[in-house]
Design a protein around this nucleic acid. Structure first.
Lengths: 137, 137
DNA sequence: CTTGACCTTCCAGCGCACTGGAAGGTCTAC
DNA sequence: GTAGACCTTCCAGTGCGCTGGAAGGTCAAG
């Protein structure tokens, strides 16, 4: 199948598929006499896998590492499990961070509600965002 | 004060300060006869403000909009409040998204724990990540 | 006069995952 | 034979917030 067919079958663009080849995620396929890429049916599986793995939050570099294990004949389960766990803790970390940012922003919003646009025009650029004096509630 | 002093006073690098000037966040300061940038003391306040605003999650483009309101003599409180509220809802959105991703990854981790590396080597690249058959718990 | 700290400009690159466009080749249908 | 659908390669750009480096100018101390 040609790259356009593969694009339709996988839901990606031809650009993206060529990019994946260049990035080492897709092997270079054989060519037709005219120089067109000629993909086997399994290419769809591989692209679908890449999409699924991306959906799970893996980066292309990580996906490449899984695929190259696979390509060397090994079962990538261990690596995949490791990556999933890594991303889980990364997400936990980001959740904690985001919650902290949310609390900080809520504090600022409270301060903003109390701020008089008339008073705020002294010297400072904006008293809402200056972390100086948030009075203890 | 010269750019190095300002850098020390604000905790940024000279590179960053020049970048802010180029990006329209800092006004071009007067120059010494030798061509050096010569900052007034208020520059520290401005840079501190930029850092605080960044700490609140505002982008440089948003901070620029606040600063240019200020520079045109208006109180930017309204704009600032608006931006804070915007970022709050953006964060809520991301929290929801992240929690969903976490649940998805937890499902995958469960599946990974059940996967036998011997069995997984058939045709597919990795059965853990294929969203096909997650059995109802 | 020289050293060395500091400054200037300009150009280029990072990381990530693409995306756009130009210039040209190939194949099928009419 | 020609339109047009598809393909090829290559180069360059996106967004964001810087960061690095080269090549050169300025200034105070010794």
């Amino acid at each position: 199948m040609r790259i356009g067919d593969l694009a339709r079958a996988s839901g990606l663009t031809t650009k993206t598929i060529r990019y994946y080849e260049q990035a080492g995620l897709m092997p270079a396929p054989p060519r037709t006499p005219g120089g067109y890429r000629d993909y086997p049916a399994e290419a769809v599986t591989r692209l679908t896998f890449i999409r699924d793995a991306q959906g799970a939050g893996l980066t292309l570099a990580e996906i490449r590492s899984v695929l190259s294990l696979r390509d060397s004949g090994q079962a990538p389960c261990g690596r995949v499990t490791e990556l999933i766990d890594q991303h889980l803790s990364e997400i936990e970390r980001r959740l904690v961070e985001l919650r902290a940012t949310r609390e900080a922003l809520r504090g600022l919003a409270r301060r903003a509600a109390r701020t008089d646009p008339g008073t705020c025009s002294q010297g400072d650029i904006c008293t809402i965002l200056t972390p100086a004096a948030e009075p203890r509630p």
